[in-house]
């Protein structure tokens, strides 16, 4: 199922339930340090929240944190104002959500990308390794040199999980493929450093890589530009970034954080909100690869067939993709 089609179906289904929206919901979202315009993860949540606002006319409160201590402060403030559901964005907010959720057992909390187990918390996790596996297959099949690249943002386990899934997918399609991996940096600035992304891309191209996957937030913009300048291929992340450079963007690994935020707001209003841990993989449509008019010409029939088969196999459990985070190792 294509990305667009899926969005439309989700959208249509949600349109139908607009009338059931309760009038008393007061959603709120606390963005993390990247900010709501990071062209990636936080922005995905922002778009989901905006879509909710547009469709239902219900306003939401928001806050962007600037340091570690503000996370708990902002979430508690939202709770004190009786906001519910409160969406926390990113694994770093997990401990703050946990602390505040215990103090306000009557309010609903959603943590995206984090794990908290409480009766009033909904934890939404994504199987990034599964989506990365698929784009890894495409990268290995599109590569003429037998070398593919990966550029991560800040060097943390989550970003290593992207790279690990990608490497497994590439090796699955072509066991002799070489995967060159680089991280942009060690501070949060690594999420928004297009210059460095561009330099790393040039370095990987010099070493022979001709398809480069970036999971680095705003840094990716530099990666895609450098890949385009060198006449190579690039793979986007989180949002569908195929439209950025048609002809260069081989595909995008989409992670539907927007749907997670939207659903939390939506179900919080109509009373169907459920606590518990959700792990969204290929099966649940939480992650996927993007195919649209912008990259149609780059994806051959053989590639599409192979990747669709792998997707079906992962969903059926025939292929097991290892998650770096399960043992902090890619083995």
């Amino acid at each position: 199922m294509s990305f667009l089609k899926q969005t439309m179906i989700v959208g249509a289904a949600l349109m139908l339930s607009v009338s059931a929206q309760a009038a008393d919901d007061k959603p709120a979202v606390v963005f993390d340090m990247g900010g709501k315009f990071d062209k990636s993860f936080n922005q995905g949540v922002f778009e989901g929240a905006e879509r909710f606002k547009k469709e239902t006319g219900v306003a939401y409160r928001e806050f962007e944190v600037t340091n570690e201590t503000q996370r708990e402060q902002a979430i508690r403030k939202m709770a004190q104002r009786g906001r519910s559901p409160i969406v926390g964005v990113g694994f770093a907010q997990a401990s703050a959500i946990e602390a505040v959720a215990k103090e306000f057992p009557d309010l609903k909390f959603t943590i995206i990308d984090g794990f908290v187990e409480l009766p009033n918390v909904q934890a939404v996790l994504f199987k990034e390794e599964e989506g990365s596996f698929l784009v890894g297959i495409l990268a290995a099949m599109a590569s003429k040199t037998g070398k593919v690249g990966y550029i991560g943002g800040m060097d943390i386990p989550l970003i290593r999980a992207f790279g690990c899934g990608y490497e497994q997918g590439a090796k699955y399609a072509n066991p002799s493929v070489e995967v060159i991996q680089n991280m942009t940096g060690t501070t949060p600035a690594a999420w928004n450093d297009p210059g460095r992304g561009s330099e790393l891309t040039k370095g990987q191209v010099d070493r022979g890589a001709d398809v480069i996957y970036a999971a680095a937030g705003g840094t990716g913009v530099g990666v895609y530009q450098a890949a385009k300048d060198a006449g190579k291929l690039a793979i986007g992340v989180d949002s569908n970034q195929n439209h950025l450079h048609p002809g260069t963007m081989l595909t995008s690994m989409v992670k539907r954080v927007d749907v997670a935020a939207y659903n939390s707001f939506k179900t919080g209003g109509d009373g169907t909100w459920k606590s518990g841990v959700q792990s969204l993989g290929l099966k649940e449509g939480g992650v996927d690869w993007a195919l649209d008019d912008n990259n149609r010409s780059l994806i051959t029939a053989a590639m599409e067939k192979r990747v669709s088969q792998a997707k079906a196999d992962i969903i059926a459990g025939k292929i097991k993709v290892h998650d770096y985070r399960s043992n902090n190792s890619c083995k």
Binding site: F91, S95, D113, I156, T186, T187, R325
Partner: peptide
């Protein structure tokens, strides 16, 4: 900052969690 990331991601992280 490079030293801290190395230590937190590879050495001092509490196993079985995502956050360093």
């Amino acid at each position: 900052s490079a030293l801290m990331v190395y230590l937190m991601v590879n050495v001092l992280i509490k196993p079985g969690q995502m956050s360093p």
